[in-house]
Design a protein around this nucleic acid. Structure first.
Lengths: 141, 141
DNA sequence: TAAATTATTTAGGTTACTCTAACATAGGTG
DNA sequence: CACCTATGTTAGAGTAACCTAAATAATTTA
């Protein structure tokens, strides 16, 4: 019994909401993920059974240690991917966000790692070439 | 009514099987996608209703024009992603394949396009730096 | 060509996720 | 403090995948 893509999305949403506004409600998650409250409740029950979320009905919603770990790891990948897409490939931020949002659930650790290293390497070794590439991309639009 | 990720996977599988061995059977698709034959039949019915596949029971399986278009476009993205992962980031081919297999269903056109352009640019403008990066990656393993 | 084998299809069921409509609770306000 | 509104929860149902077991069709072989 692993964790599904959708479950990861719920955990990440909860994590980010809590980070930004402390206490969160079913309604917040519902809005963030674009689903109706009953779907959120279902998800919370399942995540709670699996030990990723602490949840009693009508009560506060908290991530467990396990839940936080997953959410953070997913979010780290998100950041990294979005950065790579914008800062290296010159993709518009909104598109980069969307791609990162999907890929974060599938990308292998190695791939994420190499993206990071590659970005670093290029920025160190040929910053001018990179800058030139990004400039040319911008000029096209 | 768009097309789901899974439906895209079926179309791509059919496309590649046909390319490699001409006439294909339910069994072939079943093996390729790791699902049981009844699942394939279900999928073929749905894809046929949607106009992506020509299918009569016990008869041959063909892609329609629309089906081929989608399959080819998906496969092109697959090739492009896999190449980027191996030739630019130095990711092992098996991992690159797996990542490409997922991302091909989500990646925006723009992102794929920029990956291609970036690869070309770097290979032209600083081939030595790239070579050096890939060499260092290899040495780590 | 009849029997045996293999392939395909149908029937019926499961799981994950979603929804709407109806009901229940909590918290703020008259 | 009782009521009203917000929010949350349950019940029941739909859809897209998948599966197994049983039935049917096609193909091979004796």
């Amino acid at each position: 019994m692993g964790i599904s893509k959708r479950e990861e999305e719920y955990l990440e949403a909860i994590y980010l909401l809590q980070k930004n506004k402390g206490v969160i409600r079913v309604k917040d998650i519902s809005k963030k993920l674009g689903v109706r409250p009953p779907s959120v409740v279902d998800a919370l029950k399942k995540l709670s059974e699996k030990g990723f979320v602490e949840y009693e009905k009508y009560d506060r919603i908290l991530l467990t240690k396990k839940g936080i770990e997953i959410a953070e790891s997913t979010y780290q990948k998100h950041i990294l991917l979005a950065k790579f897409f914008t800062e290296i490939l010159g993709i518009p931020p909104d598109i980069a966000e969307e791609d990162a949002c999907q890929f974060e659930h599938y990308v292998h650790e190695i791939t994420a790692e190499k993206m990071k290293e590659f970005a670093q390497y290029i920025q160190d070794q040929c910053p001018y070439v990179l800058k030139q590439f990004l400039k040319e991309q911008k000029e096209k639009s």
